[in-house]
Amino acid sequence: MEYRQKLFDKLSVEQVKIELLNTAYGNDQTFLAKLDPRTLFIWYLFFGFAPWFIHNQAILLGMFAFVVVMMLIARSSPLIIFILCLGLLGQGGYLLLAAWFFGGDLSTIMPLLILTMKLSIISLASISVFTSMDPEKLSDGLLKVGVPGQVSFSISYAYRMLPSLIEEYHHVFLSFRLRGKAPEKHGILYWRSIAYFVKIAMLSFYPLMLSTSKRARTTVEALETKGSFFAFNNPKVKAIKLAHLTFRQRDYWFLTFSLLYVISLFIFGILYS
């Protein structure tokens, strides 16, 4: 009972909202968060894509170590890391079982483990980068590298609306609970209760759609009066808006360090193999 209660506390809609917002906006004081978004883009361009083309285990291991350190520096939300580990372990375990079942041994599993390793590097790199950029920073960064104003605005606006939407979803969900009838018996492994919750979790989305479209009217009118449509692709506005983005010393240091690390990793990896 006690444990179940605790688990439910962690899984509540409210908790999910808090974690999401903290992931999005909470970490603005870390080293990574103080970097220019373009620095992070460049870094991510390598660590997010290069692993697909690297097959050297030593290099991959070195990159993995680097992104783990990055993740620690970025202070990612424990919930996100937990979900990631769950996914990776699940996948690893499934591969192991499959390999075993079809009569494979360690040599069959090895390539599969390498794939998992690549996925981990990419996921950890993504988590570190996106925890370190709040949506404003991300959208400013995108605007700077030439993405249209509408897109970058939509990203920051979506995050602004997220808490209200989650709250409204939560209320509708609770409405179902306050008037509905939960199954009398939980069923084997709680399947009845789980089915009941999954059902109302899905039904709760429908009422949201209409209310969102009603909200949108005021928002669009407000955007019109606040001159957003005029501003989206106006070079002057863009320049003023992005004036605060500059490469500082720490950006150069970080990129140089990453570059040196990767180069030495490659030299070491090739020599080692």
């Binding site: 949506p135 602004r160 009066t225 606040k226 957003s228 506005v237 808006k241």
Partner: peptide, 16 residues
């Protein structure tokens, strides 16, 4: 339409 208080208050002047 913006996430932070000052960002929202200065949104229109920025746009213009």
């Amino acid at each position: 339409v913006r996430a932070r208080v000052l960002e929202d208050a200065s949104f229109a002047p920025l746009n213009f």
